Amino acid sequence: MRKEEKFLVGISIGDLNGIGGEIILKTFEDNRILDFCTPIIYASNKVVAFLKSHFKSNLNFNGIHKPEQAIHGKLNVLNVWKENVAINFGKEDAKIGEYAIKSFKAATNDLKNNKIDILVTAPINKHNIQSESFSFPGHTDYLSQELEGDGLMFMITENLKVGLLTDHVPVSEVSSKINKKLITSKIETINNTLKKDFGIRKPKIAVLGINPHTGDNGVIGKEDDEVLRPTLLEIRKTGKLVFGPYSADSFFGSNNYKNFDAIVAAYHDQGLIPFKTLSFGQGVNFTAGLSGVRTSPDHGTAYEIAGKGQADNSSFKEALFTGIQIFKNRQQFKKMTTNPLKKQTQKI
């Protein structure tokens, strides 16, 4: 924890041809946010100066070369590169993808080495980031490699939290990837994050079926009966409050989701379509299950409006404050579980 509760928040710049730069600037134009954190944008002075000029922002920033140089009460820009970058809003560009990954890798490395407290990532283009040195579907898989864990995409708002058994995989491969080990691992991660990161003592978790109508007793697929139900039964025997599988088509429309602390979806669109329908612009993508805290807005690069000054920064701002709150919750959880007085009491 940094002095005066000014947490160091690293921000990867994302795809420079998208809306990432705009939503970052819009967020920190509210100076009150600097009372809660010290932001560090991983990019370059030249890039941020260009963005300031383009969007007619009055923001001032402090250029640095390492996190230790960050000035509290100011927006800091850590120079990951020095050269000029050709920004063409709305265009997919492999070179821009390289800069997005340079920023992301530098920020992740500082998070890994405890030089920053929290990482907030601006949106990337999953196609133009691919290279020989970076062959991951997105942020989550790389973070899992670097931050000691099995990252889980956890889409969250205050009242709705949705985790995924499988995330960025083709629909044709979903069933083959869901097995007892995966289900057990993901539910364990969600149960732990609800306790540690959100302060919920006894989480209630709902699991959605893999097939329509959870298979209709094998008529529309056997995975729910042969894999999902038996695994959930075993998990319940360990004392976890895990329920389901529920038919996905009616689960959200019936408001049944309000009865649970988290919902586990079998695949990407099964969970994210209802999540974004109910909370678009206010949702946050949190990578659960890692040693460090990483959050992101719930939207993409939005090339169609990039550079036009029309981007809504609400989700990015939510991602920032959610990251800070999760970091605080982890500190509190650690204090509670390592309280020396509590240990002495248990020994007596």
Rank of each mutant, 00 (worst) to 15 (best):
E5R: 12
F327Q: 02
L34G: 04
T214E: 09
V77G: 00
I118K: 02
I326M: 06
A265E: 02
G292A: 08
L320Y: 01
L78T: 01
A206E: 04
H213D: 10
I187D: 01
I129M: 05
F55P: 00
Q344C: 08
E29V: 09
K56V: 15
C37K: 01
A122W: 06
K180H: 14
L147D: 04
K105W: 03
V171Q: 07
N329V: 04
A288L: 07
L241G: 01
K82Y: 08
A100E: 00
G163K: 06
K240C: 09
F275W: 04
K202N: 14
A319N: 01
G149S: 10
K6I: 13
F89V: 02
F275R: 01
H299R: 04
S315M: 05
T27Y: 04
V264C: 09
V284E: 02
L59S: 06
V174T: 12
N211L: 12
K347V: 13
I305Y: 08
T301A: 07
N60G: 14
V162Y: 03
F55N: 02
V169A: 08
K74T: 15
M155E: 02
G90F: 05
P123F: 15
L51R: 02
A302P: 00
G307Q: 06
N179H: 12
F260K: 02
N62I: 15
H127M: 10
I71K: 15
H139S: 03
L152D: 01
